[in-house]
Design a protein around this nucleic acid. Structure first.
Lengths: 159, 159
DNA sequence: GCGCTTTTTGCTGCGGCGCAACATAAATGT
DNA sequence: ACATTTATGTTGCGCCGCAGCAAAAAGCGC
């Protein structure tokens, strides 16, 4: 787990946004999936913060032009999730854009700051693999490990 | 992680229920907490299955006498949760009774069978500790790790 | 037992979450 | 151009979770 996995509050936001959008376009093109305007807007909304947003918060954010219905946003979110472009934070019933600082087949650990709400995304590494192995030892065939750790991030602790 | 952490579908259900109720009584008595009829009924409902139940399912189950309001069940669930007698399964928005096959201060791993819905509760052991350590290395102060693994349990796989 | 405080439960109401079912529009393929 | 697939819009609904206040019950000192 690297030491830079948690986004600094003052980092260059447009840079990672542009990179993520470019990645999304390439990824969809490669898989013959369509990154429609709706889907792109939802993704961009999530990219504008590293905090998890609920579907209704996304709606609020997009409301300035033509407020989409909840189901529309949920469909876009499902598409993005199926394509690995966003993650769902189960403990928050909310979504974050994937920042791709991990291998695609890696188990991901979410670090959720209780103070500022920012979510860091870290490769699970050997610990996550060990969990899977232990589960298998109990006769359990794991599909999708879910690891979320709430706490206080380094930037908030310094304040 | 022991090999018996996942409850067999045909195990003696009354035995573990009685044990858990006895534990709950002792635990509450020791802490001057009151295991009221309402709270006991909610706990018993959860103990009657190893599957996670939503609050409204619990209401349905208790409806034969005097249907409690949602808020009543949520309050009982919060009490039970605060006292470590039930766990919330975040990925299901539901609750399971704690089976206490782990140390109280252990990080718990939930194994959730996608076929039968049964939830196994396992001590996280060294892997969970390693996750905490790695999070700290990234400057993150972890509070409450949440680990849920969906998959297929051994009993369902044999079928 | 009697009043007082604390705890628990009941009641009303509400907002967020998540999607099913169906209709319409847009893109794609031939 | 046409049929087929895919995406979006519309309506509606059920579950989740709790705030705010009122009533009842339990504990406590006297």
């Amino acid at each position: 787990m690297s030491r830079t996995i948690f986004p600094a509050p003052d980092h260059d936001h447009k840079r990672c946004t542009n990179a993520a959008i470019a990645h999304a376009e390439a990824h969809c093109a490669a898989r013959a999936q369509r990154l429609t305007p709706m889907r792109r807007q939802v993704l961009e909304t999530l990219l504008e913060s590293h905090k998890p947003l609920g579907a209704y918060e996304i709606i609020e954010h997009l409301a300035h032009e033509d407020r989409p219905a909840p189901i529309t946003v949920y469909r876009a979110l499902n598409f993005l999730k199926d394509n690995g472009l966003v993650h769902r934070i189960e403990s928050r019933n909310a979504f974050v854009a994937c920042v791709h600082n991990h291998e695609c087949d890696d188990i991901v650990v979410f670090l959720i700051c209780e103070r500022c709400g920012t979510v860091g995304e870290a490769p699970g590494g050997t610990a996550a693999k060990a969990l899977e192995t232990a589960a298998r030892a109990a006769g359990f065939v794991p599909k999708s490990p879910l690891i979320e750790i709430a706490g206080i991030c380094s930037h908030c602790r310094k304040r």
